[in-house]
Structure formats: structure tokens, C-alpha cells
């Protein structure tokens, strides 16, 4: 019984967080704020669903694979966001009009690509 409630709670949290992430991707004003929503909330949402699945099955094969899925998302989602953000900024995607400061532009080294 407790296990069923836990599984349901984790699945619902995961579904709600996916909705929040997509709402952020649709609604926020520029690429970088959208990436905030996609990276953090998307990762936590799919991790919550994975945890729910791990509790539901409860055997060692599924748990080890679930841990693999979560670790993989925690490692790759920030790296992907970092690469897209850097490439987009260098290719001239503009920041939101209300962005306060941009220290990267004022004293960063936006020189030639080195890779």
C-alpha cells in the first residue's frame, strides 16, 4: 500500500515537472532562460519517474538500470545545455531585452574558436 502511494506520488511529480518544463520552454522570453527550464526541471522530472519505476519493480536489475538512467541524465543534461548555450551565444543569439548585465561581452574573451 505504502509502496503504491510512493510510486503514484513519484510518477505524478514527474509528470507535473515535465509540464512545468515545457511551459517554461514555451513561455520564457529568450533562449537562455528557456534552457534554465529545460535543463533543471526536465532532468528532475525524468529522475522522479525513474525513481517511481525503481520502487515499483524493486528488483536489482531494474534498480541498477534506473540508477544508470538518472546518473546519465544528471551528467549529460548540463553538458548539452552548456554546449548549446555557448554555440548560440557565439553565433549571435541575442539576450532578452531586460537582461541586466553581460560581463561576458564586456570583459570576456569572445575571440576565435579554439577547437
Amino acid at each position: 500500500m505504502i509502496r503504491e502511494i510512493l510510486v503514484s506520488a513519484f510518477l505524478l511529480i514527474g509528470g507535473l515537472l515535465s509540464l512545468v518544463a515545457v511551459a517554461g520552454v514555451l513561455r520564457l522570453p529568450d533562449l537562455f532562460t528557456r534552457m534554465h527550464a529545460a535543463t533543471k526541471t526536465g532532468t528532475v522530472g525524468v529522475s522522479a519517474i525513474t525513481i517511481g519505476m525503481m520502487i515499483h519493480f524493486g528488483n536489482i536489475t531494474v534498480t541498477s538500470r534506473g540508477v544508470l538512467v538518472i546518473a546519465f541524465f544528471l551528467l549529460t543534461a548540463p553538458v548539452a545545455a552548456h554546449m548549446i548555450g555557448r554555440a548560440a551565444y557565439r553565433s549571435g543569439v541575442s539576450l532578452w531585452i531586460l537582461t541586466r548585465i553581460d560581463e561576458w561581452k564586456t570583459h570576456g574573451d569572445l575571440g576565435e574558436e579554439d577547437d
Binding site: 529545460a38 526536465g42 548549446i84 543569439v93
Partner: peptide
């Protein structure tokens, strides 16, 4: 822009 589409596809 293209990066927006890439972020949405990743999502």
C-alpha cells in the same frame, strides 16, 4: 532560431 529548436527537441 536554430538553438531554440534544438533545446525543444532535447526536451
Amino acid at each position: 532560431t536554430l538553438p531554440d529548436r534544438v533545446v525543444a527537441l532535447d526536451m
